[in-house]
């Protein structure tokens, strides 16, 4: 089980391969990769701010909750902060379970909670200047299906 928060880019292929190697015997691995959207070529870049003291704790709590709900042999949450360009990898999650349905469900759960319960804030830089990305109501609504949650 691992939580990593870093400014540096990561190699999704290498991370997936390492995760799968460590999850040998599980039977099912699900991975998800989140990229910086290019907004049709209009986005110049993104800056992600976070709350260093709280981020690791919040992510670990989300991961612990996922492990309590599903049979996971391994889980990984990797999230970047700082400056990144269009198309760059922002974050990934990976789950390993004896059963594919559990690996998928746990990965979705991790994503839903990361969106609105992990202390990250995105700012986009576009042709009209900079703007903080606003949280969407549907992100909050997505948590309802997992209640009671962390």
């Amino acid at each position: 089980m691992a939580v990593r928060v870093q400014a540096e880019p990561f190699d999704y292929g290498a991370e997936c391969a390492a995760f799968a190697a460590g999850a040998a015997g599980a039977g099912a691995v699900v991975t998800f990769l989140g990229l910086v959207r290019d907004n049709g070529g209009a986005l110049r870049g993104m800056e992600i701010e976070h709350y260093p003291g709280m981020t690791q704790t919040a992510l670990a709590a989300i991961e612990t909750e996922a492990r309590a709900r599903w049979t996971l042999t391994e889980a990984l949450i990797l999230h970047r902060f700082g400056a990144m360009g269009p198309g760059e990898a922002i974050m990934m999650v990976a789950t390993a379970s004896p059963h594919r349905a559990e690996a998928f469900a746990a990965a979705e759960f991790l994503m839903d909670y990361l969106k609105s319960r992990a202390p990250f804030w995105k700012k986009e830089f576009g042709p009209l200047g900079e703007a903080w990305v606003e949280a969407r109501d549907q992100d909050e609504a997505a948590l309802a299906r997992w209640q009671p949650g962390p």
Binding site: G34, Y51, G53, M54, H79, I90, M91, M111, L114, K115, S116, R117, A118, P119, F120, W121, K122, W132, V133, E134, A135, E140
Partner: peptide
């Protein structure tokens, strides 16, 4: 420690 911030936008 008290922290104030907008709704989070991770992921």
């Amino acid at each position: 420690e008290v922290a104030f911030f907008p709704p989070m936008t991770g992921g």
